[in-house]
């Protein structure tokens, strides 16, 4: 089953949408929930006084007559930061759902998924300046859903940069590695969103970017004299779209290409998301990409 933007809107609250998407559309794609604690065996170490006796590998002692202690890489829960761009530009809804609604739905679904795995979820909304500190549990999930719901219903505003939110995540997770999933159009007037993402990746965090674009932004289908008004500023432009279409599309493709190239070069997981695409398709592509990445990394979303 695939749900388009209109169908999603009819599903009601963000929590309902997330559950429908994860339990229905994405069922079978992720592993079974409640799989156990998040511990992974790393290597053996010869026993020395002070080591935990419960970690002595008795089978190795039976074979070799020496004490070895099992060591594990990660013994804590995964922290997933969902970052939503709620700036004014995300209100644009040309050719599908608004970018904000689409991004909020996608992040809500991810939150639900993460919550099902008992991992910690945090939420940062820039533009709305809403922050939910990472935690696990049903209450936490409800808070995240509420925050997303609020952001979606109040609409995007302002032209806040993603860099501040990303900087805050880096500060909050100096010791713990986290998975950061950003949903934004990356229309950043200051141009520092991409460097901030690169910096976050350099700090060891795992970063996925869902660059959310409306179809009309990619095809520019307008005709006749049109007055374009900015969603973030008071800029207005009266223009004949036919006269500027080619140049606009060239600039847009260049922007998307540059962004993708810079992010992928820095090791980020990049996805261009069109709002006329079913959300579950977007999520499936994200999860497939995450699974591919997990093969070489110890930190990841266990879907």
């Amino acid at each position: 089953m695939q749900l388009d933007a209109a169908s999603l809107a009819r599903l009601g609250t963000m929590a309902v949408r997330a559950r429908v998407l994860v339990q229905g559309a994405l069922s079978g794609l992720h592993r079974a929930s409640h799989r156990g604690s998040s511990v992974e065996f790393a290597e053996h170490k010869q026993y020395s006084p002070g080591d935990e006796i419960r970690h002595i590998d008795w089978k190795s002692y039976a074979k070799q007559g020496k004490y070895f202690v099992k060591q594990f890489d990660q013994e804590s829960q995964l922290t997933v930061y969902l970052v939503l761009d709620a700036s004014g530009s995300m209100n644009f809804a040309g050719g599908g759902a608004s970018k904000l609604e689409y991004a909020a739905t996608a992040l809500a679904s991810l939150a639900y998924l993460v919550s099902q795995q008992q991992d910690r979820i945090g939420l940062l909304i820039f533009g709305g300046s809403e922050t939910v500190i990472p935690a696990s549990g049903r209450v936490q999930l409800r808070d995240v859903m509420d925050a997303l719901e609020t952001a979606n219903s109040s609409g995007g505003r302002g032209q806040n940069s993603a860099s501040a939110a990303l900087q805050r995540i880096a500060e909050l997770n100096r010791r713990r590695r986290a998975l950061v999933i950003l949903a934004s159009d990356l229309f950043d007037a200051s141009g520092d969103a991409v460097p901030a993402l690169q910096k976050l990746r350099a700090a060891g965090h795992d970063v996925s970017v869902l660059q959310t674009m409306a179809p009309d932004e990619l095809t520019f289908p307008y005709d006749g004299m049109t007055l374009f008004e900015s969603l973030e500023t008071d800029h207005r432009l009266l223009a004949n779209p036919a006269a500027i279409r080619a140049e606009y599309l060239r600039k847009m493709q260049a922007f998307l290409g540059n962004t993708k190239e810079q992010l992928q070069r820095a090791g980020l997981d990049y996805h261009l998301v069109e709002t006329n695409k079913p959300v579950e398709t977007t999520l499936r592509d994200l999860l497939i990409a995450r699974n591919a990445l997990m093969r070489g990394r110890s930190v990841g979303v266990r879907g």
């Binding site: 004014g88 530009s89 995300m90 209100n91 644009f92 040309g94 970018k99 159009d185 229309f187 007037a189 409306a214 932004e217 307008y222 006749g224 004299m225 049109t226 007055l227 374009f228 008004e229 900015s230 969603l231 973030e232 500023t233 800029h235 432009l237 009266l238 223009a239 004949n240 006269a243 500027i244 140049e247 606009y248 060239r250 600039k251 847009m252 922007f255």
Partner: peptide
């Protein structure tokens, strides 16, 4: 001028970048 379609557009910076000259000359021509 009022009858011109109004579109709230996110990527307006790209429009300005794309056709700053065109836009200006159109204003002049208008």
């Amino acid at each position: 001028r009022r009858r011109a379609k109004t579109v709230k557009f996110a990527a307006i910076d790209f429009l300005f970048q794309s056709d700053r000259k065109t836009a200006r000359s159109m204003q002049i021509k208008e």
